[in-house]
Write a protein that binds this DNA or RNA. Structure first.
Lengths: 148, 148
DNA sequence: CTACAAATTCCCACTTTTTCCCACTATCAT
DNA sequence: ATGATAGTGGGAAAAAGTGGGAATTTGTAG
């Protein structure tokens, strides 16, 4: 199914068994979708409704070739780690341990809605990342204004 | 048999006898195929379902010539090391020691599904390789976005 | 051709991880 | 209070993963 309008920022904690509660607002929006989780471009995970993900993955696969180093790398980095998730009876997701590690998830996490997908960050990692980007945000904002 | 849609990223360990467990999801997908293992282009091994491998190997042979140094090189590097594997009763593969050496497999390994084949990396080698490629991935991703 | 060592295969047993359920607490509105 | 939703934790069965001994094959030197 195709979902848009995912938004909001929520805290949630990962337990020792690698489970994390999907915040209720997101759960509400996503309850009828299959979900796909994969590594994001930054140090986070991306959670997609299956419909949105399949658009992206097909586009990538169509353009990829065993003979092109770049497309192989994109496949390794984004397509391969993708895994289908289900929401358990308590509304939680099980994050595979390899994905926990790649995003550096420890315990306190952040869900960030980005319209067609949701990012999952380790809270500490995210604060760090945001600081690092603060100056870039200002530049990006000015640049953005020039386009209008 | 012809298999597509191989994906996922899995850890597995090579034991002292050169055996490695094929992760259960891949095992499920590959249980009815003969498998071919050969050296990959990067420092890894390539595991192909026989059907996909035969496409590739024929393609390579068709384009190659005794008189061209490059095609001889490709034959030596990719076709010659190819060996047929079987899955044992416990779901493991026996990796010939020459292939272990060429990919630098020690103990902790990574299986990476790439649609029509699976790569087998030494974990440490892969982490190193990925770091080296991280910026390239970001560029490729932006480029990809411009096409959509 | 035989005898011995090395390597491979087969099989069993153990450990770890994952999955499925259920129980408990907290908060809020009725 | 009471019942509903949100959030946490943990036990136990099942599945996945790991190691190693014994049997069998292979290869080699006498």
């Amino acid at each position: 199914m195709d979902i848009r309008g995912l938004n909001g920022q929520f805290n949630s904690t990962l337990d020792e068994k690698g489970r994390i509660l999907l915040p209720s607002k997101l759960r509400e929006q996503l309850k009828d979708c299959s979900l796909v989780l994969t590594r994001g471009i930054d140090k986070c995970l991306w959670l997609f409704p299956e419909g949105e993900w399949s658009k992206i993955s097909h586009l990538l696969l169509d353009r990829s070739s065993l003979f092109k180093a770049k497309s192989q790398m994109i496949q390794r980095r984004l397509l391969a780690p993708a895994t289908e998730l289900t929401i358990d009876k308590n509304g939680r997701l099980k994050i595979p341990s390899s994905l926990q590690r790649s995003a550096g998830l420890i315990r306190d996490c952040l869900f960030i809605g980005l319209d067609d997908h949701v990012e999952i960050w380790d809270e500490e990692q995210y604060v760090e990342f945001e600081e690092k980007c603060e100056s870039e945000v200002k530049d990006a904002w000015e640049e953005f204004g020039d386009l209008g």
